[in-house]
Design a binder for these strands. Structure first.
Length: 591
RNA sequence: GGCCCUGUGGCGCAAUUGGAUAGCGCAUCUGACUACGAAUCAGAAGGUUACAGGUUCGAAUCUUGUCAGGGUCACCA
């Protein structure tokens, strides 16, 4: 039972004893540094139940808990705030109870609880991953891990956008200009190679447009009638008809891309439990639409197109099936959602990691699924995140202004290398160990940089100066971890026994911070926000560094205190590692 | 134009979801390595939380309006 719960129970009891009034809950917060105390009861909300002077009520309650809660050693009242001082014994007892719990803070999955499916990444297969995908991947992966740690079973998934006109464009360009180039023949990463042809298509397409404009056509006509575009459209039709040659080229080029993606995902450290391909799902949803008409959720217009009227919900009308009977994006998403629950019957909700330009789409999708009567529709969440912009503005893959994911990770690793070499603390490390370490640090910096920001806020990314290695950064936290490991390596005595000591102020602060960890995970899961975990870790580390600099650990004379401090350092390191795992960031033993 | 998101020291982020005198990191200025690792620590300076009203014991947070930035309003995905 947490100290909060203990006090809350007693305060309720006290309220009844003192004023004969029942109160439903009590509000607490951490005591601010400038006041004496460890936990603070906010009196103001209680005035609703008992009118009076908040200071007097605070005094009454303070006196009551002091007499009735053994863990409280003193109290003081400032305005409407009752500050309570908690006995060292409570904290050491708490520490001893968690010290050996290697999964401290995590909740193991509850048997009957439904699973969550977390979708993220979902790239197009016509170009390499860029900075925007990086944010998506990091967020999706981390949120999945956080939800898992908070006690739910999780399936990580993505829907790979492997078909459509954009795919045909790169296929066509390759056919026309590729001269049979392959990843093997060129030494290029598959996704890069295909991406090049996507760019190539756009270049040639633009040439054709300006050509026909100079021949007197309007821009609109030129765009619509360009031979390359018509050819690409023809190719799409052939693909949909199952044309053998087109399909086999499609398969081959996609396989190049997948090989490339695999390398990127592996470097990034993200993974998936199950994959969905749009080529398999793009026809889904049509029968659901048919059923929806019977239910009265959808209606047919004169031209045969099918719509959903959402005006009663403050939205527009939305098309769910074209007049020619083909599916639109919305149709697919309806079908795919239903398919997923069929495939994984224990799924009770889904998280879609998709940029905020699709806010409206998901609002509509969730509403339609609700109207169709699926009970899991209440547990759908659009993890919407802000764009990553460059100082020069938006990234445009066709204009070559993107920050490539592979290159970015490589640059971060290089920076880590440069800094590490300057500091020169790695004697005895092999070449392989070193390069592994640089990757850990470089990626740690990148991941932390992106994840510490509230997802819904947009990020301005300056490739030249953006990612720091000092202050509130990944490497700062990794450094603290490494330093603790150094202490643990030097602690060559038996520190396994439980001790009870008089706590140093810094130790008490650290214990309070450790106590917040389980709640932090729950909060991060409830808010779909890795930033909450990142900020928690930073606070923990800052608190530890202050402790470290002010208090001697191995130099401590008193044996019990020395034991406790090694244990405490150990637990802090373990918690750093555990929290960083939720962010997908590794920690080094040395750096 | 309608709807949605954002606006916090020069810059980048917080604020226990309505609680105390708004915290922290870069950058700037002072100090601390013959010390368990200085990618660190201790301190200084820097704010009318975009602006104006409203709600209440109490507002960065809720509400209304204004301004600024972004997004979205396709038989595209």
């Amino acid at each position: 039972m947490s100290i909060k719960n203990i006090i809350e129970t007693k305060v309720k009891e006290g309220f009844l004893a003192l004023y004969n009034i029942e109160i439903p809950s009590v509000e607490f917060q951490a005591t601010r540094k400038e006041f004496e105390g460890d936990i603070t009861l906010v009196v103001f909300p209680l005035l609703r139940y008992k009118k009076g002077n908040p200071v007097q009520i605070g005094e009454d309650l303070g006196k009551y808990v002091l007499e009735n809660v053994t863990e409280i050693t003193s109290y003081n009242v400032v305005k409407g705030f009752l500050n309570l001082v908690i006995d060292d014994g409570f904290y050491t007892k708490f520490f001893n109870s968690i010290y050996l719990d290697s999964s401290y803070g995590y909740v193991s999955p509850i048997a009957d609880e439904k699973a969550m499916m977390v979708e993220y990444s979902s790239p197009n297969t016509n170009k390499p991953l860029h900075l925007g995908h990086v944010r998506n991947n990091l967020l999706g992966y981390s949120v999945a891990e956080i939800i898992k740690a908070a006690g739910k079973k999780v399936y990580k998934t993505q829907i790979i956008n492997d078909r459509g006109i954009h795919i045909c464009k790169s296929m066509l360009a390759w056919e026309k200009f590729g001269n049979g180039e392959t990843p093997t023949s060129s030494g290029l990463k598959g996704d890069k190679l295909v991406g090049n042809y996507y760019v190539k298509f756009d270049q040639e397409y633009k040439k054709e447009i300006s050509q026909s404009i100079s021949e007197g056509k309007t821009e609109e006509e030129a765009k619509k009638e360009a031979p390359l575009l018509l050819e690409a459209q023809q190719m799409l039709l052939k693909w949909e008809a199952g044309d053998e040659q087109v399909v086999s080229l499609w398969k081959e080029m996609n396989s190049w891309v997948y090989n490339g993606f695999e390398v990127t995902y592996k470097n990034m450290g993200v993974d998936f439990d199950t994959l969905y391909y749009e080529s398999n799902t793009y026809l889904l949803g049509k029968d659901v639409v048919a059923q929806g008409i019977k239910k009265g959720v959808f209606y047919k217009k004169e031209d045969g197109s099918i719509w959903c009227d959402l005006t009663d919900d403050g939205l527009d009308e939305k098309i769910v099936l074209r007049s020619d009977g083909t599916a639109v994006y919305m149709t697919q998403d309806i079908g795919t959602a239903i398919q997923r629950v069929k495939d994984f019957p224990d799924v009770g909700g889904m998280v879609y990691t998709v940029g905020n330009e699709q806010d409206y789409h998901f609002q509509v999708l969730f509403l339609i699924l609700k109207k169709l009567g699926f009970d899991w529709s209440k547990q759908l969440h659009h993890l919407s995140y802000g764009m990553v912009d460059l100082p020069s503005g938006k990234m445009k893959s066709r204009e070559g202004t993107v920050v490539d994911a592979d290159e970015l990770m490589l640059e971060m690793t290089d920076t880590a290398k440069t800094i590490s070499e300057e500091l020169g603390k790695l004697e005895g490390y092999s070449k392989e160990e070193k390069s592994e370490l640089y990757k850990t640090i470089g990626l740690g910096a990148l991941k932390y940089f992106i994840l510490k920001v509230d997802p819904k806020k947009r990020i301005l990314f300056d490739p030249k100066s953006s990612v720091d290695f000092q202050g509130n950064t990944g490497p700062f936290i990794q450094y603290t971890y490494a330093r603790i490991q150094s202490i643990v390596r030097k602690a060559d005595f038996d520190y396994s026994k439980s001790v009870t000591i008089k706590l140093h102020e810094k130790e008490k602060e650290l214990l309070k911070q450790l106590e917040l960890y389980p709640d932090t995970i729950q909060q991060a899961a409830a808010n779909y926000s890795p930033a909450i975990v990142a900020n928690y870790t930073y606070d923990l580390v800052k608190e530890f560094n202050s402790f470290y600099q002010n208090v001697s650990i191995l130099g401590e004379e008193n044996q019990d205190k020395k034991i406790f401090r090694v244990q405490l350092a150990n637990k802090v390191a373990e918690t750093i590692k555990s929290a960083f795992l939720l962010l997908g960031i590794n920690v080094p033993e040395r750096m």
